[in-house]
Design a protein around this nucleic acid. Sequence first.
DNA 1: TTTAAACATTGACATATTTCAATGTTTCGA
DNA 2: TCGAAACATTGAAATATGTCAATGTTTAAA
Lengths: 112, 112
Amino acid sequence: MTEDKKTNEMIRVFKALSDPVRIEVIRMLSCKEMCARKLLEGLQISQSTLSYHMKILTESELILAQKKQTRIHYSINKSGFDNLHSFLKNLTAKKADCIFNDKNSGCKKKNN
Amino acid sequence: MTEDKKTNEMIRVFKALSDPVRIEVIRMLSCKEMCARKLLEGLQISQSTLSYHMKILTESELILAQKKQTRIHYSINKSGFDNLHSFLKNLTAKKADCIFNDKNSGCKKKNN
DNA sequence: TTTAAACATTGACATATTTCAATGTTTCGA
DNA sequence: TCGAAACATTGAAATATGTCAATGTTTAAA
């Protein structure tokens, strides 16, 4: 399954969204941008675990990290979510250049 | 991280989308609905592996399976993708009832 | 009834993911 | 300069995921 770069990026995004902690972090940040310490208060996980999750979220480009003195302010990366939406739209869109469009590509055997 | 039922369903959807084989299957089915044997022709995996992936895709409700004689016709489940789109829209939408909206919930210390 | 086609299930294995405690790094304030 | 706050990294362990060969099940055709 050798996929193109864009697809691999999106698979990384889907993996990032495949965890309840990270979904909860996105919910919190959709409400208000905040630093890791504040996020940690609302979650039942250790500091190192949160750091691990934030790395996955920022590397997927769904979340932005901005350093401010000793803290890091995390926020939703709108363009990351925009990319996700357009990828999904395109994924299931009917394409003109479908390689299975020829008549003999079906599964059902001909009855004639 | 105890999440609601809807969120758990969506995490299952994101997991389903987190694999290159399954993305490729969705691409093929977006082009044309087809049975497993036909899907297998376009993929470099074993039959049992495809069966495993199809189970994940159908259980996530992204793909529909319809039995026809000895074959199973797979197709895109539009309502599954619609649910995904609305979940994503809602996930990052600004909510009125944000619990972090009070002024003392920030990370930055006050300077007064 | 026997055979074969189409797909599912099982068991075994390799790899990936998630978690935490412990420790490292950077920055600010005393 | 020293200590503490905020976050990252590492190492170890448990669990989840993806893969295949072998085998099971169902259905239709011979």
